[in-house]
Lab assay of single mutants.
Amino acid sequence: MEVRTIKVFTTVDNINLHTQVVDMSMTYGQQFGPTYLDGADVTKIKPHNSHEGKTFYVLPNDDTLRVEAFEYYHTTDPSFLGRYMSALNHTKKWKYPQVNGLTSIKWADNNCYLATALLTLQQIELKFNPPALQDAYYRARAGEAANFCALILAYCNKTVGELGDVRETMSYLFQHANLDSCKRVLNVVCKTCGQQQTTLKGVEAVMYMGTLSYEQFKKGVQIPCTCGKQATKYLVQQESPFVMMSAPPAQYELKHGTFTCASEYTGNYQCGHYKHITSKETLYCIDGALLTKSSEYKGPITDVFYKENSYTTTIK
């Protein structure tokens, strides 16, 4: 009895394709271990004539594949690729409408935090270190965002349907971005203890939790000093293409032309909904596939993004 075979390709990165001759009487799992086709788990399936010449994702289970996976995804987590594939199996079914010149995501599976993050990423200057993220990001900007969303979920250790947080998501993504040249110098002034300067680099240099107003941050924000008295913390120097200011959701007025974009969060910790506000020729609110415009805006804002380049204080 002759062994019926077909020729397929296996890959971990969709760049390096490895030619395989597979036995049609055995499952993919018996031949390769966990195997995925377009995100779908085909591990328990036997090869079919229609699979001839198709590319299958496999887990990096030998040295060659491990090197290829690390170079593309910059992670050695053995569960990463499987999590990416199972997320992709959902995100490829989502709709990605162009809204006001940006790629958004039609609401499904509690994905409003991903839509808000995706919209924000198209408006701030950011370059990702893992080629996987950078490639998928370019495709997302062009309207094909399924891979990018699935990668975000995998890097953030999230599953489809789980509630997510924009600030946490951005923080994970910033860790995989090139923020080497970003720098922030802060000064804390206390009447009792004097003053202390701190220099922050990388992710810490672009994120701040405690106030939404970048102007206020430049002037000074009140913080408790270690001595128990009130101290003032203010920005001395900022070198970065953008800054992200966050605070627990509270009524906040966004003035046209003073910011790049913002995240609105309605609801409580267990259950809520994100919308995205962007400042173009007027203010726009993007909620999944829905767009509304207004000249002014007041609502429960939790993150505001500002364009920056270089700032030095005039406070002496």
Rank of each mutant, 00 (worst) to 15 (best):
A108D: 09
K275I: 07
T76L: 14
I105N: 01
A117I: 06
T169L: 09
K54M: 13
T91C: 09
V188F: 08
V304G: 01
E253I: 11
V166M: 08
T27E: 10
V160T: 05
A136M: 09
F80M: 04
A69F: 10
K316T: 06
M244T: 01
H48W: 12
G143M: 03
L173W: 05
Q98M: 11
Y269D: 15
I6T: 11
E296H: 15
K191M: 10
H276D: 00
L163W: 08
L114N: 01
L59P: 06
G220Y: 00
A150T: 03
Y208N: 08
D109S: 06
A150M: 02
N111A: 03
M209A: 15
L283A: 01
E2Y: 09
V236K: 06
T43G: 14
E281M: 01
D23E: 10
A132R: 04
F259T: 03
V185C: 05
L59A: 07
D63Y: 09
L37A: 13
C271F: 13
Y72L: 08
C261N: 03
T120C: 13
H48Q: 15
T10I: 13
L291Q: 11
N309Y: 09
V8P: 05
Y138W: 10
R83C: 08
C227I: 01
R184S: 14
L212E: 00
C225A: 00
N147T: 13
D23Q: 12
R167K: 08
T266Q: 11
F56W: 02
Y138K: 14
G194K: 07
A117L: 02
S295F: 11
L179M: 07
L126P: 09
Y72K: 10
V304T: 04
F80E: 05
R141I: 10
Y137S: 07
T199Y: 08
T169E: 01
S25N: 12
M26I: 12
I124Y: 05
D303R: 00
Q237P: 00
S279Q: 05
T64R: 10
K93T: 13
H74I: 04
A117S: 12
A69P: 06
Q237W: 07
N268S: 13
T313L: 15
A247V: 04
F9E: 11
T266R: 06
I315R: 15
D38R: 09
D13W: 02
F70G: 10
I152V: 09
A205V: 02
T169Y: 04
H176S: 06
I105C: 06
N268F: 10
T120Y: 04
C182I: 03
A231Y: 01
M85Y: 07
I223R: 05
F80T: 04
L119R: 01
G299P: 03
C193R: 00
G143P: 03
G272P: 00
P60E: 07
E253S: 09
L114Y: 01
N110E: 05
E215Y: 05
E144G: 08
M207I: 08
I277D: 00
